[in-house]
C-alpha cells in the first residue's frame, strides 16, 4: 500500500496524466457512441446489393455488449493511450532522475520496479472497472430481458479485456524501463504497435504460411486476439468472421507469458544496472 500511495502522489497532480486519461475516455466514449451508426451504415450499404437484406446490428444488448464493447475498446488505436501514459510515467523517473533519489532515500530497486507494476495493475483495474460500469448501464438501458443469467452470460470478455489491458501495459512498462527516454520509447512503442507488427503480421499471414499460424504469437497481436471479433452476425457474414463465444484461457496465456518474461528481464537488468 505504501508504494501505491507514493505512486498516487506522483501521478494525481500531474497535468499530462489527466489530459491523456481524458483523451482516452473521450475517444472510447466517441467510439462507443458511433460504433452502432458506423456498423449499420456499412450494413445498409451492402444491403443495396443483396437480395435478402442483412439484419441491423444491435451492439448494446446483453450479453453481446460485453463482447462488442471490449472489442472496440481493445483496438490498437484506443489501447495505446493508457500504454503511452505508463511509458511517460516511468520514463519521467529517469529523465527527472527521481529514480536515483528514490533509491538513495531508501527504496530498493525491486521496490521501485514493484511500485511501477502496481501502477500498471491499478490502471488495468480502474479502466476495466469503468468500462464494465458503462457496459452494465448501457446494457440495462438497451436490453428487454434482464435476467441475471442473461446479463452475466459471456462475462468472460470483461476478464479478457482486463488481461488485454494489463499485458499491453506490461509491454509499455518493459519498453519504458529498457529505453528510459520518453520520446524514443513512445515513438518505438507506437511504431511497433501500429505499423511494424501489422506489417510482419501481413507477411506471416500470406497464403503460403497460412497453416502454421505463427502470426498468432506476435506479442501485440496475441493481446488483440483475446477479444478477436465483435458479436455482430451481419459483420460475420460480410467479413468472414468466425464465431467467438468466450474468451479462452489459452489466448490469454500467450500475452501473459510475454509479460512475465518482460518483467523478468526488467527485474534482472534493473538490479544490475548503474543509475
Amino acid at each position: 500500500m505504501k508504494l501505491l500511495t507514493i505512486e498516487l502522489k506522483k501521478v494525481l497532480t500531474y497535468k499530462t496524466f489527466w489530459i491523456i486519461i481524458g483523451l482516452y475516455f473521450l475517444f472510447l466514449g466517441l467510439g462507443i457512441v458511433m460504433a452502432e451508426f458506423i456498423v449499420n451504415a456499412m450494413v445498409d450499404d451492402v444491403n443495396k446489393r443483396l437480395p435478402i437484406p442483412l439484419p441491423h446490428a444491435v451492439l448494446f444488448n446483453f450479453p453481446d455488449i460485453w463482447q462488442n464493447l471490449t472489442f472496440f475498446a481493445s483496438i490498437r488505436f484506443v489501447l495505446i493511450f493508457p500504454a503511452i501514459l505508463i511509458i511517460i510515467l516511468i520514463t519521467n523517473e529517469f529523465t527527472n532522475k527521481t529514480v536515483r533519489q528514490n533509491i538513495v532515500n531508501g527504496m530498493s530497486r525491486s521496490e521501485f520496479i514493484f511500485s511501477k507494476l502496481q501502477l500498471v495493475f491499478m490502471f488495468a483495474v480502474v479502466i476495466t472497472f469503468i468500462l464494465t460500469l458503462v457496459m452494465f448501464i448501457l446494457g440495462l438501458i438497451h436490453s428487454d430481458s434482464q435476467s441475471l443469467s442473461m446479463i452475466f452470460n459471456r462475462f468472460s470478455f470483461v476478464f479478457g479485456f482486463f488481461i488485454q489491458m494489463i499485458t499491453y501495459l506490461c509491454y509499455a512498462f518493459f519498453v519504458a524501463f529498457l529505453l528510459r527516454n520518453t520520446g524514443l520509447a513512445i515513438a518505438l512503442f507506437t511504431l511497433y504497435t501500429i505499423i511494424i507488427e501489422p506489417v510482419i503480421y501481413f507477411f506471416l499471414r500470406a497464403p503460403f504460411m497460412w497453416e502454421n499460424k505463427v502470426y498468432t504469437y506476435l506479442p501485440v497481436n496475441a493481446v488483440i486476439r483475446i477479444v478477436e471479433y465483435p458479436a455482430i452476425p451481419a459483420l460475420k457474414k460480410l467479413m468472414n468472421f468466425q464465431l467467438q463465444d468466450e474468451v479462452t484461457l489459452l489466448s490469454c496465456a500467450i500475452p501473459v507469458i510475454y509479460s512475465m518474461v518482460m518483467i523478468g528481464i526488467v527485474y534482472w537488468t534493473f538490479n544490475k544496472r548503474d543509475l
Partner: peptide, 11 residues
C-alpha cells in the same frame, strides 16, 4: 544530495 537536485518538476 547527489549532484543535482532531483525532484518532480510538477509537484
Amino acid at each position: 544530495v547527489i549532484e543535482t537536485p532531483n525532484f518532480f518538476p510538477y509537484l
